[in-house]
Simulated assay, not measured.
Amino acid sequence: MSVRKRRWKTKEGEEREGWLADYRDQGGKRHQKLFARKKDADAFLAQAKVEVRAGVHTSESQSPTVAQAAALWLSDREANGLERATLAQYRQHVDLHINPVIGCVKLSKLTTPMVVDFREVLRSGDATLGPLGHPRSPALIRKILTSLGSLLAHAKESGKVFGANPVRELARARRAGEERGRDRLEIGRDIPSRDEIKRLLELIPSDQEPILLVAIFCGLRASELRGLRWSDIDLKFGEIHIRQRADRYCKIGPPKSKAGNRKIPVPPGVLKRLKAWKLVCPISAGTLVFPSPSGLVQHHSNIVRHILNPALMTAAIVNGDGAPKYGLHSLRHFFASWLINRTRDGGREMPLKAVQVLMGHSSITITADRYGHLFPRGDDAAELADAERKLLG
């Protein structure tokens, strides 16, 4: 491995000079890279030595672009039989958000600071991207970065690139506290408050009540609500068993994960309302609990447009623009907060593991990352002083 000065003439006869970093990778293949300054060549070669020694170096000439890696990742997801709706969402992340901004970047040159810059473009928007340059929501940004991290991991597993995954590095930094709380779910902004839920339940029309009650007090995902059958509800013992869900195309399939197949207790008031609803529920081929008026699987947008939004407007639960303040998933967030809140505050005061099981999360880490900050904390100073006294006698 060496750095040496190189001089040459252009086609126009102009003399040029630069510094050439010459090295061999872990497979013995020779590579050369030209730099305008010697210190840049030295820095590159020093880093290349470390990566070659560790067996994780990828030369720029061998590295695919982000767009090429994304295409391979999507093909692999499709070949593995990924759910149609999920695959469509991944394609949107790639085509509408990732490729327009960083698609032409070589994976070997993609760094954590570049991912941070990419995230800032998503947050603030970029006029140079035209219609695609609008600011994205925090929730959408998280999903886009997850897709980017997944496609980078796939490229690494496939041997297309080596070294650290900059998206995962950024996630580790965030967990370490560098950006803790920036996109944290908040009561009254992302999660309806108890007073808002109380007002909603007082004013909700009777024909809109059952599905919202189940969403609020049982925490089902929208897809699980839409795919719920009467055979999945034990009206005698008050229990819902999640066995299937309906995707965005109204196709019935299995739960989102193994953890999604779960049993959820139904509060007595909700159970009473469900028994009354069963007597007037529209008939459907799949004996659905919440079918459309014609007996088909309801579209998510129809539930929001014709049930949730009118209920929120009636209860005056709106934002500064006078639009409905919450989406359907916010009711699931409320359910999680209700499980976590102390009993003296009207909650159920459940431990983290129990919350994970009832929410149907595939990992307790998901539950902790999303809702851990909602768990009540005691008087840390008083508890610390008491522990010190007990330890020291």
Rank of each mutant, 00 (worst) to 15 (best):
residue 303 I to P: 06
residue 242 I to G: 03
residue 2 S to F: 05
residue 125 G to N: 10
residue 221 R to C: 01
residue 42 D to Y: 03
residue 50 V to D: 11
residue 121 V to F: 02
residue 170 L to K: 08
residue 120 E to A: 12
residue 277 W to C: 09
residue 101 V to I: 14
residue 97 H to G: 00
residue 228 L to C: 06
residue 24 R to H: 13
residue 355 V to L: 01
residue 335 F to K: 02
residue 227 G to Y: 07
residue 51 E to H: 06
residue 327 G to E: 06
residue 52 V to Y: 00
residue 80 N to E: 12
residue 220 L to G: 03
residue 334 F to R: 03
residue 175 R to H: 11
residue 193 S to L: 09
residue 341 N to H: 12
residue 57 H to F: 15
residue 103 G to K: 06
residue 35 F to C: 11
residue 36 A to D: 14
residue 315 A to E: 05
residue 102 I to S: 04
residue 45 L to Y: 07
residue 94 V to L: 04
residue 310 P to K: 03
residue 27 G to I: 00
residue 53 R to M: 09
residue 264 I to Q: 08
residue 356 Q to Y: 00
residue 188 G to V: 11
residue 183 D to Q: 05
residue 263 K to Q: 11
residue 166 P to N: 01
residue 206 S to Q: 14
residue 4 R to L: 12
residue 301 S to H: 12
residue 301 S to W: 10
residue 371 Y to G: 02
residue 195 D to C: 01
residue 31 H to G: 03
residue 77 R to Y: 06
residue 253 G to S: 11
residue 118 F to S: 10
residue 237 F to T: 14
residue 199 R to T: 15
residue 373 H to C: 02
residue 170 L to A: 12
residue 343 T to N: 07
residue 115 V to F: 04
residue 259 A to M: 11
residue 282 P to C: 13
residue 109 K to N: 11
residue 372 G to M: 10
residue 112 T to N: 02
residue 271 L to W: 05
residue 15 E to H: 07
residue 129 L to S: 07
residue 101 V to E: 04
residue 301 S to R: 12
residue 56 V to P: 00
residue 99 N to K: 13
residue 111 T to N: 03
residue 63 S to P: 10
